[in-house]
Design a protein around this nucleic acid. Structure first.
Lengths: 348, 348
DNA sequence: TAATGACTTGCAATCGTTTGCAGAGTATAC
DNA sequence: GTATACTCTGCAAACGATTGCAAGTCATTA
């Protein structure tokens, strides 16, 4: 990399000034067609590429954006990363990625670090403390991805969590389930709140009273889901939920393990619906019914929206996009056993 | 972000020169304790942070490294990303990540784009065309992660693919399998070659002749694995392998589907061992026996190695690190059925 | 008292681009 | 032939930090 060649070298060989070389790249219309060709030809031969750092410094535009995500290890988030990267690459932007691991402090550090790189915009999946942290970035254009920080007037690109959850739980009520448990995420995260709301709506619609003790909060990870599900499933059969709606992919794994630990068969003894699709949901036997999110599209769209905004200038109204979720019925749900018995009685 | 404050603003308020402010941050020993404190105090109040771009430009050191990986969506790769990021963050380096999707052209583009950001080093999971592409980066310090590009004298940090595969296949031969198939990756990738070599070694040790037609090449993805496995498993029972060793995680999924399609029970009719551990390998019933890779550690180590090299200067000899794999025996393998019969005969 | 040295600080050049301004050259209109 | 417009190019000043060099202060030493 010590062999970097700069404008001057190209300029010398092409017998023009530094300025002309620069313009040949950035304002082709301003330079004579012949000279431009000559310059580009020589630049190409030498393998010249404008130094982004210098260019960004001078223009005050870095041609890069920041991406702050909670954890790449979650396959759903990896999708988000990919979507953003692809959209950015398509328009020749570079992305700086940081992981917060759901930790507000790491988020603040990431923002500080990011700031000194002069990104032109930011896509963030905010942690619970984002509201405060985001003041650090001044008036940098920000798009909140997947969740909302709660900042008023923020631009957001999210899925319809409430609607998705509602359909999932409707599916369960239609099967005849009356005691439907939920393993919810921590309620300081907007997605968790919305999914919980969808659960409540579907219950209400089915005329089933909401029982707070059927909702357990997990920590968004496998162990949290397992604990929460254990709590719900180890109750005596008459109080035990016959179906479980789980608020994200990792916790669904925990819930499945909990069911297995207790010897509950899926779907005979317990119906399960999870939020987020995944490799294993398709692969398991029985495969798991889920609310799938268009994660890639979501992220791609968020990035495009951000870049549009950067290039077309500020918009007056906050952008707030919601993408629909996709309910995928597989084989982890069935009518509850009591229900079966009642049907048999009726037939006689 | 338009509210960026620069050295001069701090300098003015602190009644010192620009130079002193800069030195207060970068060479604290060179400035009087009292002034330094005053400067830092004021800088802190204003929320001043040195502009990385300007700093990098002037010093010729960007405090950043590049990371080029084939695809974040593969959970194994996501681990690599996390490992590199964590190691880099710990030492205040920023990482530029690019995906190649195993496409040589994208790799070249990534390298070009990277170059203009003046990274100080590069960690790359090379594609098949990397040997050529890497000439683009001049003498930038590079570490090859997970695979080798084939460039002589390159620095590499990889796992012991051959040894790991050998143990996996030994496990199968010890169970009594004679016809062991392999779904291998494309042989222009070093890991695929090495894993295939381990397979051959284990067969040789068990006195089983190598049969080329028991080895099918897949494309590293699920569909490729499925096709390859279908080919092997749809043969008449007398020619069909009783066990399968699959070269990576995605293809293992394909192989499992292929087995299911053909109504083969695991492990009764078919034993399976995969390379790479994963969520679903633990979760499936039966859970899948695998060769696990220390992906996070591998990446962390690769990044540390690179940064050490950057800070301590060039090393004379190429660094070549191999980490051991971990064989995890689960429930997807068993003795072949013929073997069982023979045992019963012996008992009489 | 003058000289030596240690310790601080500031000046100004520099990193590689971009770009406002002005000047040179050519073409068009009167 | 002169005025006007237009096209193209170069000069030199930025962008925001770092750093070699020189100069200033002060204490110590001969």
């Amino acid at each position: 990399m010590e062999i970097m060649i700069d404008v001057d070298q190209v300029a010398n060989l092409a017998q023009v000034s530094r300025a002309t070389v620069s313009r040949a790249f950035t304002r082709p219309d301003l330079v004579n067609a012949k000279t431009r060709e000559r310059v580009l030809e020589i630049a190409n031969q030498l393998g010249y590429q404008p130094n982004q750092l210098a260019s960004a410094l001078r223009r005050g535009q870095s041609q890069s954006i920041g991406l702050i995500i909670s954890d790449v290890l979650n396959p759903g988030n990896a999708m988000l990363v990919k979507g953003v990267q692809d959209a950015a690459a398509k328009r020749d932007y570079t992305v700086f990625m940081f992981n917060t691991d759901e930790d507000s402090d790491k988020e603040r550090k990431a923002l500080e670090s990011l700031r000194s790189h002069m990104p032109q915009g930011l896509i963030i999946m905010p942690t619970a403390g984002a509201q405060e942290n985001l003041s650090l970035v001044g008036n940098l254009p920000v798009i909140e991805l997947d969740r909302a920080s709660g900042i008023k007037g923020a631009h957001t690109v999210m899925v319809d969590n409430t609607g998705g959850s509602r359909i999932a739980v409707q599916h369960l009520t239609k099967l005849g389930h009356k005691r439907i448990g939920m393993v919810a995420g921590s309620l300081d995260i907007s997605t968790a709140v919305e999914r919980h709301a969808g659960y409540q709506q579907a219950l209400a619609e089915a005329g089933i009273p909401y029982q707070a003790n059927l909702v357990q909060i997990g920590n968004h990870r496998e162990d949290g889901g397992r604990l929460a599900a254990q709590n719900l499933l180890s109750r005596p059969a008459s109080e035990r939920p016959t179906a479980l709606f789980v608020g994200n992919n990792e916790m669904t794994i925990g819930a499945i393990f909990a069911a297995r630990d207790l010897g509950l068969r899926i779907p005979e003894d317990l119906s399960i619906v999870g939020f987020d699709d995944s490799r294993w949901a398709k692969l398991l036997q029985p495969s798991i019914t889920v609310v799938a999110q268009p994660a890639y599209e979501l992220a791609y769209l968020a990035c495009e929206t951000l870049l549009d905004r950067l290039e077309r200038g500020r918009t007056q109204k906050p952008i707030q996009i919601r993408l629909a979720t996709n309910f995928i019925q597989r084989f982890s749900t069935a009518a509850p056993i009591e229900e079966e018995r009642e049907k048999k009685k009726e037939k006689r």
